[in-house]
Amino acid sequence: MKTGGHPSNRRLRIEFLVSLAILLAVAVLPAIVKNAYWQGVIVVSMYFAMLAIAWNILAGYTGQFSLAPATFGMIGAYSTGLLAYYYNTGFAIGISAAIIVSGLIGLVLGRIVLRLRGPYLALTTLSFAEIMRLVISNSIDFTRGDLGLNVPGIFQDRLPYYYMMVLVLLIVQVGLFYLLRSRAGLYLRAIRDDEIAAASRGVRIVYWKTFAFTLSAAICGLAGALYGHFAQFVSPELGLLQQTGVVISMVVIGGLGTMVGPLIGALLVYVASEFLRDVGNYQLVVFALLVIIFARFFRAGLWGILLALFGIRAPRPVAVAPAAE
């Protein structure tokens, strides 16, 4: 199907090009930022960007509000970590296993929560997140519990990690762009805007909702595995609800349901939080406050504000009749 002329695809193309430009800027950044510590900060911010992008596929494009992105990151990190710990597998097998394991768990969870919406979905995924974290931190014999696991690194230097993250982010963004401009992308957004209407026009709700859940979980798992090899250490703290809070705040500040939002949100929020850490650990206070302000008054996020400055209107939510209560 030819969809090139549709206005939402024009906006998608703009977002895609801008996100490529941002990634290019990040790629040349090491020429200016030579400090290994700050390069490490940007690597971690790219880990969060992957989680944010993955969560945005679910929450922003499919309308499924999960509270478990950090949990899937933790699952991915532990998949490769445990394989390396017990079987001494290389990172290639470990990372592939991380994608498959978290994708499969995402598939199962996605199937289970199919019928749930809004607060019910949030509560179920929150319980799932807490159960997974408690199980990992309590299975001391198998995972070493809260002590965490040491994970072998891949490279000696910071810079190869840096470019590995840039490359993976690039692949994810390109894949997402082609997904969103295909029929599948339209189906996902149709489900987000009105599930019943989409079903009545023949969209396979079960299939596409499960697909989005699996894809999102697999990307989170990939991000977690890469992070684990970079930090050379994984612990149940990766799956704390506060981590999910950080991911959500990045997407909301950047712009929910856009391709640029999670990327600029993650990079800005994480790098800014490093500065705030120096001032006295105020980062979470500031970001929670920013999220509330953005959600309350600037629902389109930073990207929406930027578009408005250039005279391009932010996507308007479809007006629906008040829900029958």
Partner: peptide, 18 residues
Amino acid sequence: GVMRDEYAVIVTFALSIF
């Protein structure tokens, strides 16, 4: 009407962290 549940989750979750 759209994103109403999501708004409530985001805002109360952020309030909790705050």
